[in-house]
Design a protein around this nucleic acid. Structure first.
Length: 106
DNA sequence: CCTATGACTCATC
DNA sequence: GGATGAGCCATAG
């Protein structure tokens, strides 16, 4: 199922496997497939990520995709994702060292 | 087949 | 810590 022939299916499958409270970076997801298409993952999310927990996939440093910070934050609170309380809610970031997940660390 | 496009990443100033 | 530029890769048209 994962490999239906397109990178999209592989990425979607991996993202759907990410457990709640954990997050992965676009680069890590792409790297998991031996590709550096960090933008690809983002591109796929924007186009097909509608059916996967895209909020568990963030950029490097622990920042959610620009324009989706509010939506992502909402899910993080619901799933109790480890967040680092910044000066304000508008400047939050993921507790990357703790929330980082890997396809074998499940 | 070629061009345009991104929910990205890294290096540098 | 923030801003800028260039690199990268697969999909869609």
């Amino acid at each position: 199922m994962a490999s239906d022939g397109s990178f999209v299916t592989d990425v979607l499958d991996l993202v759907s496997e990410i457990p709640s409270g954990r997050v992965m970076t676009y680069g890590s997801v792409a790297a998991a497939f031996g590709s550096r298409g960090a933008r690809l993952v983002g591109q796929i999310m924007a186009r097909y990520g509608a059916d996967v927990p895209w909020w568990r996939v963030i950029r490097a440093g622990g920042h959610p995709p620009v324009g989706h910070e509010e939506q992502a934050l909402e899910h993080y609170r619901i799933e109790s994702t480890p967040l680092l309380s910044s000066t304000s809610e508008a400047g939050y970031r993921i507790d990357w060292p703790i929330a980082r997940w890997s396809p074998g660390d499940a």
